[in-house]
């Protein structure tokens, strides 16, 4: 599978011609159109971000299925520290001719700071019937039971938190096919 690390900017339009994995660390405003216009193609888009201070991200993605037999997966994972803000709009559009489509979108926000804010709008617009389309979105804090478990094993609270945050991202990073890009993303996230 081909892999591409995208630069964060507005109006990114992607039209993959072979199975491709895209990775992005969005900052500020970023919008991505992922157009599936070739039969049999499968595309993945992973967006990861960790926001500190009063940083904010306004991310929007559109997965547009135009022809039959295409697959798309979008995963967004964001950790919010301090008083950072994230806003995500993720749209799946399955046009009438695009039968046998599989499209999935997931958006997880881990809020760590005490003054964080976030908004999330996962949208589905589906005009074909032979499809599988779904999305999931969650916002939550670090699970207190997990912290407790790690602390009972002798870790400090900070260390335990750190492990959980890195685990939050690793769950997605482990799906990135290229080790070099994985390392690059880890460095940039800096958590």
């Amino acid at each position: 599978m081909k892999i591409e690390l995208l630069k964060s900017q507005q109006n990114i339009i992607l039209e993959p011609q072979e199975d491709t994995q895209y990775v992005i660390i969005p900052s500020g405003e970023a919008s991505i159109d992922l157009i599936l216009n070739k039969q049999g193609i499968s595309a993945e888009l992973f967006a990861l971000f960790a926001l500190k201070g009063s940083e904010n991200v306004f991310l929007s993605t559109r997965s547009v299925h135009k022809v039959p037999h295409t697959t798309c997966t979008i995963n967004v994972k964001g950790a919010l520290f301090d008083s950072s803000v994230s806003n995500y709009i993720g749209k799946i559009i399955i046009e009438k001719p695009a039968q046998q489509t599989t499209s999935y979108l997931e958006d997880n926000i881990l809020s760590i700071g005490n003054k964080t804010r976030n908004a999330s709008q996962p949208i589905l617009e589906i005009e074909a019937d032979d499809v599988k389309a779904s999305h999931g979105a969650t916002t939550g804090r670090i699970n207190a039971d997990q912290i407790y478990y790690l602390m009972s094993r002798g870790l400090s609270k900070e260390a335990a938190e750190k492990i959980i945050i890195s685990g939050f991202f690793e769950a997605l990073l482990s799906k990135v096919v290229d080790e070099k890009i994985r390392e690059q993303v880890r460095k940039k996230l800096n958590v």
Binding site: V131, A133, T139, G140
Partner: peptide, 9 residues
Amino acid sequence: NIEHEATVS
């Protein structure tokens, strides 16, 4: 703590 899930099939 917010969860949202949707499926179409």
